[in-house]
Design a protein around this nucleic acid. Structure first.
Lengths: 114, 114
DNA sequence: CTACACATTAAACCTAGGTTCAAGGTCAAG
DNA sequence: CTTGACCTTGAACCTAGGTTTAATGTGTAG
């Protein structure tokens, strides 16, 4: 599929897709005779993975690192499991970090007799 | 106190303090005869509040909004309580948002028989 | 042949949140 | 009266993560 369809399928703008390619987050696709990018169906899955990861708070360089480990045989089970575990740890760490100040706020409110 | 001491006390660089003033996050201090900024002791508390709020994931414009409500009588109880409650809600919302994908990862890992 | 959607590139622009720089003023100590 | 630490300003620069624009090529339908 071409970049426009990939964009439509994933809801990610073409410029963003090119941006990811340029910054080596998304692997370079092959080119058609006319020079157009030609993506395999798996590209949509990879893009969605990237999008999900970003929403989980991963930076593009973290995603790049995680993806190059898990890729190129993208749905290779052990790599996938490892990546998922990594994400889980990342989220849990994040929640922990955010709960310290949360507890402090609760304490403050309690002290204010409220 | 002058900007250098405020910076030392709070661990926030002078340029960052000037940046906050310029972007109306930190109230403009009075000026000394020589034009130097002269801060009251409360400035350190306000700055620390800003710093804490940022670490909780608030943007400067959210902080600006929250602070202008709570300020200028900074430790006015009802405003303070309101601000703290607001922060609490914000954090809880954030945790909620992050837990949806977390559950999905857990589910995926389970499905992979792992 | 023309129109129109779609593709290409490099480069400029944008927001957020700052830092760094250049050119200068102030002030206390020696 | 010079040195050094501190202060002032505006403007340029930086990273992240993109979007927009301009100039140009491609492919298909009427």
């Amino acid at each position: 599929m071409r970049i426009g369809e990939l964009s439509r399928r994933t809801g990610i703008s073409s410029s963003r897709i090119r941006f990811y390619e340029k910054h080596e987050v998304l692997p370079k696709p092959i080119r058609d005779g006319n020079g157009y990018r030609k993506y395999p169906d798996t590209a949509a899955k990879i893009l969605s993975l990237i999008d999900d990861a970003q929403r989980l708070g991963f930076s593009l360089s973290e995603i790049r690192a995680g993806l190059s480990e898990a890729a190129p045989k993208l749905p290779s089970r052990p790599a996938m499991v490892k990546a998922l575990r990594g994400k889980l740890d990342h989220i849990d760490q994040h929640i922990k970090e955010v709960q310290a100040p949360r507890r402090q706020i609760v304490k403050l409110l309690k002290e204010m007799g409220d």
